[in-house]
Design a protein around this nucleic acid. Sequence first.
DNA 1: CGCGCCATTGACACGAGTCAAGACGCGTGG
DNA 2: CCACGCGTCTTGACTCGTGTCAATGGCGCG
Lengths: 225, 225
Amino acid sequence: MFRPKINEELFLSSLTPQEKQLLTAESTVVKMKKGQLVFSEDGIAFGCYLLLEGRVKLYKTGVLGKKQIFQIGTPGDMFGFHPILNEHKYPDSAELLEDSTLQFIPSTLFFRLLKSNNDLCICLLRALSNEFESLLGQETMLAQKTVRERVCSVLHGLIPHYQEGEEVFIPLSRNDLADLSGTVKETLVRVLHDLKEENVICTTDSKGTIRIMDLGKLKRAGEID
Amino acid sequence: MFRPKINEELFLSSLTPQEKQLLTAESTVVKMKKGQLVFSEDGIAFGCYLLLEGRVKLYKTGVLGKKQIFQIGTPGDMFGFHPILNEHKYPDSAELLEDSTLQFIPSTLFFRLLKSNNDLCICLLRALSNEFESLLGQETMLAQKTVRERVCSVLHGLIPHYQEGEEVFIPLSRNDLADLSGTVKETLVRVLHDLKEENVICTTDSKGTIRIMDLGKLKRAGEID
DNA sequence: CGCGCCATTGACACGAGTCAAGACGCGTGG
DNA sequence: CCACGCGTCTTGACTCGTGTCAATGGCGCG
């Protein structure tokens, strides 16, 4: 649900060998550290990014500086292309959750590829359309569900991002989880407390990493169909 | 803010005369009445629509059947193309707010145009990207503002849809306004009551049509920059 | 005239935010 | 090695906004 649908595989699959070569030649790979901002609201966009290693949170800052996280990016995900499509400033910010490796694609290159490759265009149209649908689902969820249901929905949505075989460990901070769920740290903690008592989740270490214990109960508690 | 950015003008401007002719030949114009559903959630998409006359509300149904309206369409707006792009079912529903005239564009035609016209593709990409940004703004608003602020934001966002010269008359039902603001009818009515006392708005007829009286106060009350 | 839909108002309960305090782990420096 | 400070997590007490339920009022229509 929170997974960006535009990713490396999708992007590359539309390109000709020639274009792939062009991409390698004209994009740059950078390493950045946890906590660093890749871009932020009001910044001017010079290109977009492909996440090669690490994880990133995408959020929009609302009134009083409160953040609303709307997407967690994992390796292979593309992000930051909205403003280069419509030549605006960034509507959101991107901050790294882990030390990461990024491939920067300059907007001139991006556009050249779009103009020369109709398949790529249609592919991106589909992807963007998917992202829209997913955001719409999120909006409805935030607007209508209780905090408890929202937290459960968020945890459920995070599973694909943090799955290791059969197990799921979510190492996000309480603040980040609150910003995803549209609530505050204190309320989030109380909900997590209840979920622990109900054996839906448990915390595995001193840092409070969450482990999903009972997927069925989680879905029921989140009113997820 | 709620205005779909994909409209007739934008769409047509990318087409060649030849393609315009094709569009006229293969699309059909239909008249429908207020209250009718153009399409609904779970329905399969065979095409998309151009609104020629009238107004339409686009909403997604959440838990317990509660509706979340995310867009009001006015003449010239295009809608219903998300599922034909990604070959899904409709993620939302469209209901007419007034007697309307619609132009139906079959998905086969839509795709033929996309494939043959790269400019059209890029144009739609930009448009969709704009829609995404606008939805993101809405989500953040709904998640963070109080009901009072949300109602003011919604009223403010509706102005371009219902402007007649210098004046603005919003004839939406209380339920629709509540579904736009992410609240319930009763709470919405109370907020409107307060706004009336503060001379921000007034009601002009027995049906409760709202007239915007003080745009400055409205923006301040809605925390709109 | 009476029925029904919609808008409005009141009383009430409860979810969720705010404020404040404490617990815990971690790194730094003496 | 321990003490201290800092940041994050956790808990408690309190308040208030907002949803729920119920009743009333107004207007249009058959």
